Amino acid sequence: MIFALQEAPPLSGEVAQLRALQAAGMHVAPTLVLAGLETEFYQLGNLAEQIRRAFEGVFGARLDEEKLEKACAFAEKLLRESYLLPERAEEVRAALPEGPVLVRYAGEAPFYVETGKQETLWALKRLWASRWQVDAVLLRQPELAPPDVSSLVQAVGEDLGPDEALSAQAAQILGQPVQVWASAGRVVRVG
């Protein structure tokens, strides 16, 4: 559920790439992989059923844009105002690295940079709620449920950006062209 990068279960995609780069000796930013935490959050709050009901009648013969906007606003608010299990929130807080952290989905662009542990928990809920923005829902419809993707929390500095030298090194290790974003000389994102 809450893993350091090197302890995360075997995954594919960006998490696997970050692990491969770390195993090859590249400096990778301290990374927490939150696998299944969002799913647990939905299940324990019965959020999926509440959201399903809110979206009834949105996608029919024609898209009801007014209902779509209301349903998306409801879903976003529901996620932001729901709570993680207290013991799970404490586990995440205890595992968080010190200093500023980047909160995002694996394989996706950066989302939020936060500095405090409580702020990071709030950023996680905002990240999960972002799956219910109108554009995000339209991209995945007719599927309503968001994709099951691990959330990442990574220690970063203020200098997060593309790094051509690290990109070339990572491409050699991974055997494919990649773009690496780095902070303080450490790999943060592989795209």
Rank of each mutant, 00 (worst) to 15 (best):
P100N: 08
F41K: 07
R104P: 01
T39R: 14
R62T: 12
E108T: 06
R126S: 00
Y42T: 13
R93L: 06
Q118C: 12
L124T: 04
A23R: 14
L78C: 07
W122D: 08
A75N: 01
T39D: 15
A29R: 04
T115A: 07
P110A: 14
A16H: 00
A71G: 00
M26Y: 12
G107S: 12
K125V: 04
E69Y: 14
R93A: 11
R93K: 15
Q22L: 06
Y105H: 14
L63H: 08
R53K: 12
E49S: 04
L85V: 12
K67E: 12
A73Y: 10
E76K: 15
H27D: 15
A106P: 14
D64M: 13
L63M: 02
E40G: 12
A75R: 02
Q22G: 14
P100E: 07
G116L: 06
L18M: 00
V58W: 00
G116S: 15
L102G: 05
V103W: 03
H27V: 15
R88H: 09
K77I: 05
Y83G: 14
Y83N: 13
Q22F: 11
F111W: 00
G25D: 00
V103H: 08
L32R: 09
R104S: 09
P100C: 05
R53S: 10
R62M: 09
E66H: 01
P97M: 09
K77A: 14
F55L: 08
E66V: 04
R52G: 14
E49H: 11
Q43P: 06
V58A: 05
E81L: 07
E91M: 11
K117M: 13
L79A: 08
L79P: 03
P100G: 09
